[in-house]
């Protein structure tokens, strides 16, 4: 258990981060990551309970398996004037809930679990809603909390969407 103060600090950080994504403020969002960050959203397979390989693994295909440089590349596309699918703008909603905060064995690092709901309204009538569980390692830096590691496990084996033109 962490103090109410730390919990509140993490909560405020995640809410702020979600608002940056809702408002497509991608360069500011990238500033919330540590230089050595790993951002991983594995592909989820529909496998049996007894299957020792599990529904996702580092060696398998992923939606994101990114370093900070990889994330920057994606942001270049988002912000390019020729990113046709971004105009008209997607109507993003990033919901973060079920937040749990734990100390870790590493000084200055917190393990933060949360649930995300990501809704996107696109064009006239299109929308997509994705659900997932998130596990972050947040690190204390002189600039404040920063994301050192993020794992998002989506609750979908077949993504109910044509793309993921956002971050989680």
């Amino acid at each position: 258990m962490t103090s109410a103060e730390v919990y509140w600090e993490v909560h405020a950080f995640l809410a702020y981060e979600a608002r940056l994504l809702d408002e497509e403020r991608y360069p500011e969002w990238l500033d919330l990551f540590c230089d050595d960050a790993h951002y991983w959203v594995p592909g989820v397979e529909n496998r049996g309970r007894a299957d020792t390989e599990g529904s996702y693994a580092p060696s398998r295909m992923a939606y994101f398996d990114d370093t900070l440089d990889d994330l920057r590349r994606r942001v270049v596309r988002f912000t390019a004037p020729t990113a046709w699918a971004e105009d008209p703008a997607t109507r993003h909603l990033h919901v973060v809930s079920n937040i749990e905060v734990e100390d870790t064995d590493t000084a200055g690092e917190l393990l933060v679990r949360s649930v995300i709901v990501n809704h996107r309204g696109q064009g006239d009538i299109d929308s997509a809603t994705l659900y997932g569980r998130r596990e972050d390692v947040l690190r204390r830096t002189p600039e404040g909390l920063r994301i050192a590691r993020r794992l998002v496990v989506l609750r979908h084996a077949v993504l109910p969407a044509k793309n993921i033109n956002t971050f989680f």
Binding site: G43, M61, V158
Partner: peptide, 11 residues
């Protein structure tokens, strides 16, 4: 094939 597969839906 590298491990795994990704599946999605297009209208």
């Amino acid at each position: 094939f590298a491990g795994g597969s990704i599946k999605s839906v297009l209208g």
